[in-house]
Structure formats: structure tokens, C-alpha cells
Simulated scan of single mutants.
Amino acid sequence: MNRKKILTFLLAIVMAFGSNLGNLKTVKADEPQTQGTAYTFIKQYYLKAGDSTTAKNPAETFLFGINGSSEEGSVGKAILRKVEKTKYNDESHQMLDVETMEKKDEIPESIKKISIGSVSFDEGSVKTEGIQKEVTITVPDASQYPSTGYYFYKFKEVQGDTAGVTYNDEEYFVRVAVHYNNEDKLEIANVKLFNGDVLKVTGLQNSYSAGRLMVQKVVTGNMSNRNDEFNVTVTFTAPQGKKIKLPIEAKSEENSVGDVQWEGDEQHKTATFKVKAGTKTVFTNIPEGVTYRVEEQKASGYDDPVYKTNSKENENSGTITGGTADEVIIRNNKSTQIDTGVFMTNLPYLLVLAAAVVGFILFFLNKRHHMDEE
């Protein structure tokens, strides 16, 4: 009896479950998925200029927004700015600017903006050949659009503050193409990326660039000591509105006299170190656009230091260009006139003595000449 009740109970559960399965919607693999559909475009990030063994990009997240700023409500959005071949266009189907069209108030609020994601790159991941990642675009359900046609959404890349990074400041459009499918329903045909001239592109590019600086020491003069040490300071300054987000590497290639000591923040970094004759101290992964100034403390007994930056005499500063190696030569001189042992106070007596010697020689030669004649 109990067994029969259990079987009856299980059968009831199976029938109820089967009834619910009949109420589920079956979705075919090729059926358009228009509700919150996500599309993508390519973001390429590459090392534009710099030694690939020493140039290392900081970690970076690229953002996108309506006007390229980080204002609240703008980031992560693109705004409808142009329509073509829609119900709002005339029979010529010429592209219209939404801001100036007469029927702009008739456009549903639900389609006036779309969402654009962000994309991140790890520290040191960018190489000369570049690396690509996808940026996600999310568009409204096709049923929200009032008609078929092309809907162009404007956006720009948000300008970041990493020194050495070239941000993309061009204007771009996401074009959403809406059409009728075989079931006479609106669907998203495709989503494409266009530049500011409304020409199709595949993605956006960014680059990182870094350079090098070598500080070389030269000591001259007959009284100099090639083992004398000199104190040098190099100050690196980021361009206005930018930050130096990774440490600048430093290495003494020859005649090292100690490690480089660092101070400062992301706007200004100061390196202090000692040098001597023949020392070459090299700084690498200096972001493009960063300026530098080299200063040496005057050493006792030596003339003031003389600087030469690249080919410019009496210059001790410059601006880093990606892929180049700047050079600052610091020259110190210590010379004096060597004592010959001749005292100027005895000069009159020496001159008299020299005249007497010359006179004696002339007298001897003249007397000998007369003797020869006789």
C-alpha cells in the first residue's frame, strides 16, 4: 500500500514538471538576440618608441565617454548624434544631425544613449608589435527603435594622465543598423565603428613611448685627481597634467661609486648619486615628454662644472623623446701653472750675467780673428 502511494506521488511530480517544460520558450541558435545585445570593437596598444628591453608601460585602463572627459554621466556612454535612412529622414535619406533636426524631440529617450565598456592592459604587457583587446558596446533592444535605418552614436576616449602614453583624442561613431528580419520584426543587423569623417574603422590605437639619458663624467687638468668624487642631482619633471607612474631605472655602467638614491612623487622625481672620472650613469624607461635637469655640486679646488647636452654647449637640461638616448657630459677642470724654479726677482742679475757671457764670447772671437790675419 505504501509502495503504491509513493509511485503515485512520484508520477504526479513528473507530470507537473513536464507541464512546466511546455511553457518555456525555445530559442534557436541563429535567432537574433536583441535584448541588451553586446558588440565589440578593437583597442590596440603598442610600444611606439623605446628599447623593448627597458621600456615598460605602466598598467593602464582606457575609458570612453560622450565628450572625452571624466565627468559623471559621460564616462561609459555614447550619445545619438546622427541618423540616416530612418523615419526622421526625408526621401533623399541624407544623414541628419540630431541636434539640428526638427523632429529630435520625437526620438525615444531609450535609444538616445548606448553603453561602452573599458579595457585594461597590465604593466609591461605592451610590445612593439602591439597587443589587442576588445571593448564591449551594449545597445538597446531593437524593438526600442522607432524605425529601420542607421543610428550614429558619438563618443571619444577619455584622456588619461600617464606620462609617455599617447591617448586617442579623435571623435568616433558607433553605427547601429536596424532592419526588418524574415519575421517582419525589427532587429539589429550589425554594429560598426566609424571615425569622425564617418568612414569605417576597425578600432582605436594607443601607444607608449620612452627614452634614455646618460650622464657622463670627464675630469681634466694637470692638478686633478681621477679618483675625486662629485655629487650630482638629476631632476625629472612630468609634463603638465601627467604623472610618472613607474620608477625610472638607473644603472652606473662604468666606474660605479654607489647606488642612485630617489626622492619625489609622480610629478617630480629626483635622483642623487656620486660620479668620478669616466663614470657613465644611464637612466632608462623615462616617459616621452618628461624634462630633466642635471646639476653638479661645485667641488673644492675645481672650476665650475661645464655641461654639454647632446650637441649643445653650456646646456644641462632637455626633454625626452621616445626611442632616443640623450647624453649630458659634465666636465671638471683643475689646473695650475707649474713652478719652473726661476724667480722673477733675480731676473735683472741674470740678464747682466747673460750679457757678460755674450760680451766675453764676442771678445774672444774678435781677438782670434786678428791673430789669424797676422
Rank of each mutant, 00 (worst) to 15 (best):
residue 8 T to D: 08
residue 9 F to V: 07
residue 12 A to E: 01
residue 19 S to G: 14
residue 39 Y to E: 08
residue 46 Y to L: 10
residue 51 D to F: 05
residue 52 S to I: 12
residue 56 K to E: 10
residue 86 T to H: 08
residue 86 T to P: 02
residue 95 M to A: 15
residue 100 T to I: 12
residue 103 K to V: 08
residue 107 I to N: 13
residue 110 S to H: 04
residue 112 K to I: 09
residue 122 D to W: 01
residue 126 V to L: 10
residue 132 Q to K: 15
residue 135 V to R: 03
residue 137 I to N: 02
residue 146 P to H: 12
residue 155 F to Q: 10
residue 155 F to L: 10
residue 156 K to S: 14
residue 160 G to V: 04
residue 168 N to P: 00
residue 177 A to W: 06
residue 183 E to A: 07
residue 196 G to S: 02
residue 209 S to E: 12
residue 215 V to C: 11
residue 217 K to E: 15
residue 225 N to R: 02
residue 226 R to V: 09
residue 229 E to H: 01
residue 237 T to K: 15
residue 243 K to I: 01
residue 244 I to W: 08
residue 249 E to Y: 06
residue 250 A to T: 09
residue 253 E to V: 08
residue 255 N to V: 11
residue 261 Q to T: 11
residue 265 D to Q: 03
residue 267 Q to V: 09
residue 279 T to W: 03
residue 281 T to S: 06
residue 285 N to R: 07
residue 289 G to Y: 11
residue 299 A to K: 15
residue 300 S to E: 15
residue 306 V to A: 13
residue 310 N to R: 13
residue 318 G to W: 01
residue 322 G to T: 09
residue 325 A to D: 03
residue 330 I to W: 01
residue 332 N to F: 00
residue 351 L to R: 11
residue 360 F to M: 07
residue 362 L to P: 00
residue 366 N to Y: 12
residue 368 R to I: 03
